[in-house]
C-alpha cells in the first residue's frame, strides 16, 4: 500500500494532464447524456425574458467578453438570443463597453440568424431591423451607459451597419435606457456590476447576468438581494438555459453547452478522486515521515 502512496506523490503531473484530456475527449465522442438539473437563477432569468413578450419592450443582450471566455459565454448568448427571437421579442445586440465584445456580438448574431433562417422558410424568416438590431462599439465605458440613460439615439446614432436608429423598428422608440425591458450582460469580468450600478440604480432598468463560473460566486450576493433578475453561471448555466429552451419553447438545435456537460461531469469526478487521493497520500506520507525520524 505504501508503494501506491509513494507512487502518487512522485507521479509526474503530465500524466494528470493527459488523464484530464482523455476525460474530456472520451465523453465528447461517446456521450452518456447526463441529465441537466435546472436551478432557480436560470429559471428566473428565462421567465423574465419570456415575460418581455407581453410588454413589447426590447431586450438588450450584451456580449461583454473576449475569445478567452467564449466557450462558456457563447452558448449563453446564443441561447438567450434564440429564445427572444422565437418569442418575437425585439432584440438589441450590443458588444458592450470594450472593443473585443463587438467581434463576439457579430459572431453570435451570425450564428443564430443562420440557424433560424435556415429552419424557417421565406415569409417566416427573421428580418434585420424588425426583429433585431446590432449596435456598434462605442468608446467611453461608464460614460456610454450614462449617455444611453439620458439619450439613446444621441449616444449611438447609428447601428453597426450604418442605419439610423430612428429608422429601425426595434430602436425607433427606444429613447432612453429606461425604454428597454431588460439588459442581459454576458461577461466574465466585473462589468455586470457596472451595468447594475448605473443602468439599474440610476435608470431603473433591470439587469440579468450570464457569467463565467469564476465570477458566479461573486454574483450570488447580488442575486440574493434581487439586484440581478437572474443568472446563468458557467457552462452549466448555459446548458440549463438550452434545456429550458428545448423543454418550454421546443427549440431543437445543437446544444453546445449541454453536449459539454458530459465531459464536464467526467472531469469533475476525476478531480474529486485525485483531490481525495492526494489528501490521503499527503497525510499518510506525513505520518510515515514522522515515524521515521
Amino acid at each position: 500500500m505504501m508503494k501506491f502512496w509513494l507512487f502518487l506523490e512522485r507521479l509526474d503531473r503530465r500524466w494528470i494532464y493527459l488523464a484530464i484530456g482523455l476525460s474530456v475527449i472520451i465523453p465528447l465522442i461517446f456521450p452518456f447524456n447526463s441529465p441537466t438539473t435546472i436551478t432557480p437563477p436560470t429559471v428566473n432569468l428565462w421567465n423574465y425574458i419570456d415575460s418581455l413578450a407581453e410588454t413589447g419592450k426590447p431586450l438588450m443582450v450584451i456580449t461583454d467578453y473576449a475569445p478567452s471566455t467564449s466557450p462558456e459565454l457563447d452558448p449563453m448568448s446564443r441561447a438567450v438570443i434564440r429564445h427572444a427571437l422565437e418569442k418575437d421579442i425585439p432584440i438589441i445586440i450590443y458588444g458592450g463597453l470594450y472593443p473585443q465584445g463587438f467581434g463576439m456580438s457579430q459572431r453570435v448574431e451570425q450564428y443564430v440568424i443562420d440557424e433560424m433562417n435556415h429552419k424557417k422558410v421565406n415569409g417566416d424568416t427573421i428580418i434585420y431591423g424588425e426583429d433585431w438590431v446590432l449596435l456598434p462599439f462605442i468608446p467611453g465605458a461608464t460614460a456610454v451607459i450614462m449617455g444611453m440613460g439620458d439619450d439613446f439615439h444621441r449616444t449611438s446614432p447609428e447601428d453597426a451597419r450604418g442605419n439610423s436608429l430612428s429608422d429601425l423598428e426595434v430602436t425607433k422608440d427606444v429613447r432612453r435606457l429606461g425604454d428597454i425591458g431588460l439588459i442581459v450582460d454576458i461577461s466574465g469580468s466585473s462589468l455586470p456590476r457596472l451595468w447594475l450600478q448605473y443602468a439599474t440604480t440610476r435608470y431603473g432598468v433591470p439587469v440579468g447576468v450570464g457569467t463565467t463560473a469564476v465570477s458566479a460566486a461573486e454574483y450570488y450576493a447580488f442575486l440574493q438581494t434581487g439586484q440581478f433578475v437572474g443568472m446563468m453561471g458557467g457552462m452549466k448555466g448555459a446548458a440549463e438555459y438550452e434545456q429550458l429552451n428545448e423543454d418550454l419553447i421546443e427549440v431543437k438545435v445543437r446544444r453546445v453547452a449541454s453536449i459539454a456537460m458530459d465531459a464536464q461531469n467526467a472531469v469533475h469526478i476525476f478531480i474529486i478522486i485525485i483531490v481525495i487521493l492526494g489528501n490521503i497520500s499527503f497525510f499518510v506520507m506525513k505520518k510515515n515521515k514522522a515515524r521515521r525520524f
Binding site: I25, V214, A217, K236, V256, H268, I271
Partner: peptide
Amino acid sequence: AFGASFGYTVMARVSLLIGRIQFLL
C-alpha cells in the same frame, strides 16, 4: 466562500478546455 469560489474556478477552467477540444473535434 473561498472554497466555493475555488470549485467554480476549476469548473470554469475545465469549460475552457472543453471549448477548445470541441473546436478540435
